[in-house]
Amino acid sequence: MAKGDTILPHRHRRDQLVYASEGVMTVVTQSGAFIVPPERAVWMPGGTEHRIEAKGDLSMRTLYIEPDAVRGLPQEVCVLQMSPLMRQLILEAVEAPQVYAVDGPEERLMRVILDKIVALPTAPLNLPIPSDRRLRKITEGLMLDPADRRNLADWASEAGASERTLARLFLAETKMSFRAWRQQLRLMRALEMLAADVQVTTVALDLGYESLSAFTAMFRRAFGVPPTRYFDDARSSRAEI
């Protein structure tokens, strides 16, 4: 997929594992948005309506899995961390014929993949979307302008609820505080912008950070590396396979 391409909302009967081998995609469902950087995958249970947006040139591989194929598969949409072994298994699986012999090498490969999926750790790369109309005024405003620095007290009159009520609703509907939700939004938007080759300084300022160092510190806390190295590390990981 090329930068800016979108796969319109759709759903599949079977569970789906979509692996981003290169580029960044955003997967949007009714429950929220999920950012999928390189070397991650998004898991979607069967029947989940979703759309996929390419934030840069995107290469992905997809596996379709029967919901009852193995016990322990994720029951909700989530982003999964890929191990080097899992990446190689997926690349081999997509080359296998769609129909293969039971107890043959392809079937054994698929069984290994199923066991590995169950054990994969999740990555906190989702942004829950609240249903309460008062919260939606806030979250939709921030998605349009992530640099908006207003706090909940500032939003209260516009949203039509007290600061205390809004804080309680954020925790109840997103399992996150307002500040944590806004930071998660900025992190996800940062990955999208970096994938589109936007300069790091521009990303920092556009997202409302007072300095490049403040943005870099936040990014490093979340991902373990500075923004200038994030995609370089993903490319290095692929080269080691």
Results as ranks from 00 to 15, higher is better:
Lys137Gln: 12
Ala156Phe: 03
Ser177Asn: 11
Thr201Trp: 11
Arg189His: 10
Gly160Asn: 09
Ala156Glu: 05
Leu166Ser: 12
Leu169Gly: 08
Gln199Ala: 15
Arg149Ile: 00
Val203Gly: 03
Arg164His: 15
Ser162Gly: 15
Ser162Asn: 09
Trp181Val: 00
Asp197His: 13
Leu166Arg: 13
Ala147Lys: 07
Val198Asp: 14
Glu210Tyr: 11
Ala153Asn: 07
Asp145Tyr: 06
Glu140Arg: 14
Phe215Trp: 10
Phe178Cys: 02
Ala195Tyr: 03
Gln184Val: 00
Trp155Gln: 05
Glu210Asn: 13
Arg134Asn: 11
Arg189Cys: 04
Ser157Cys: 01
Gln199Ser: 13
Thr202Phe: 06
Asp197Thr: 09
Ser157Phe: 10
Gly208Tyr: 05
Met143Tyr: 11
Glu158Ala: 11
Asn151Pro: 00
Met143Glu: 15
Leu169Pro: 09
Thr139Ile: 03
Gln199Asp: 15
Leu144Arg: 15
Leu152Asp: 05
Gly160Thr: 13
Gly208Pro: 01
Ile138Asn: 06
Ser213Glu: 15
Ala196Gly: 04
Met193Pro: 04
Met143Ala: 07
Leu169Ile: 06
Leu212Cys: 07
Asp154Leu: 00
Asp206Tyr: 07
Met193Leu: 14
Asp132Trp: 11
Arg150Cys: 01
Arg186Val: 00
Ser162Met: 04
Lys175Met: 07
Ala147Ile: 02
Arg168Val: 09
Leu171His: 15
Thr201Tyr: 14
Val203Trp: 01
